[in-house]
Nucleic acid binder design. Structure first.
Lengths: 137, 137
DNA sequence: GGTATATTTGCAAATGATTCGCAAATTGCC
DNA sequence: GGCAATTTGCGAATCATTTGCAAATATACC
């Protein structure tokens, strides 16, 4: 494991939510180059040390988000108001996927699931004011 | 509904699988411009006449795929060998999403799920030859 | 039906995330 | 510690998608 890859992995591990490639690049400003971050993310995913999914968000557009694979495979909720992720805990799709594999004769090797909407915090604020506030920068 | 939007919608309705924006642009070559196709796709999604999701595929990279909303909300399997989609039928996540909403106090307004792996056809070919053949162009 | 106003379209260029080529630096191995 | 293999930095390229603006089309109104 090279220094750059270790730095990228620990950035992912230190985060409570998935990070976009560009945020990792930002966090590693001065540590390693943007191209290196992208290459390291590919390497980590290949090595099963990280997982990723592509998400569109009105604030950030289409970006790929990465999370360390230290914990069990899990899914996330994305708040459309504050643009943060909420951890939904370990994946609960095992049964559904096994059913689909059997029904349709497929071999499922990976899956992407995420939910989006309004998180509890933003919903609470919306109860008092007309609209949820925009996320802080 | 303008002519361009109708053309884009009928391209989606005529397709058995979700189409990437660029494939819609290709199908409507000479009918309307690429920028118009993108704008029409946004319009159709806003108007709830179409649904979309962003998918990464080794052959096509990151692209947004669109499907007409004529049928019930559904999910797809993406074959990593032939790069086609398999229709998995109507969404079965209702219960899971309701559980998560209750448990975590979230308001889920949309979700993205897709599975990927090897489809039945490609798996059958792989049984005879060493590797599944690449998709025809 | 004919015209004024609002919306949509085409075109070409911009944008933003991601990737690539290549020379220099780092790593893993003996 | 020295060398071949791999990785990194830098800058430029790529690709999907978006945008500005003038022309064309749609919709509202008379």
């Amino acid at each position: 494991m090279t220094r750059a890859r270790a730095a990228v992995l620990s950035a992912l591990e230190a985060s409570a939510e998935p990070l976009s490639a560009s945020r990792v690049v930002g966090k590693l400003e001065g540590v390693c180059d943007q191209a290196t971050v992208y290459r390291a993310l590919h390497y980590l995913e290949e090595a099963r040390l990280a997982e990723s999914f592509v998400l569109y968000c009105s604030q950030h557009g289409v970006e790929r988000y990465y999370a360390s694979s230290k914990a069990a495979h899990r899914h996330w909720f994305h708040c459309e108001s504050c643009h943060r992720f909420v951890d939904l805990g370990a994946c609960r799709l095992g049964g559904l996927i096994a059913d689909v594999e059997k029904e349709m004769g497929l071999r499922v090797s990976r899956h992407t699931l995420y939910l989006s909407g309004i998180c509890a915090d933003c919903a609470a604020h919306a109860d008092c004011s007309a609209h949820a506030v925009k996320a802080a920068p």
